[in-house]
Amino acid sequence: MSSAVARVAVPARGSLLERVNAVVRRIIGAPDYSAYLTHQTAHHPECKVLTEAEFLDEQLTARYSTPGSRCC
């Protein structure tokens, strides 16, 4: 496993703004396209990569179809 696996949700590099952005997005439950891109290029370079819109659709549909993402 390469280090690309670890902590993609909080990029170790990047400007402060980018890192704050990634953290806040994760907390409010927004899909993280760049984490997905990092993972795909590191581990499945042969696969076709979803576009951002396709990825968002896939993630949001899944999030709002199973119980377990939001509570009373």
Partner: peptide
């Protein structure tokens, strides 16, 4: 880590997971 897929399975800093979890449970 084992099932990392960049989608649902994403190793995440504990404070961020705490925030995410708290935002989800507190309604």
């Amino acid at each position: 880590e084992r099932l990392a897929d960049g989608r649902d399975f994403v190793p995440t800093n504990k404070w961020v997971v705490f925030g995410q979890h708290f935002a989800a449970i507190a309604g």
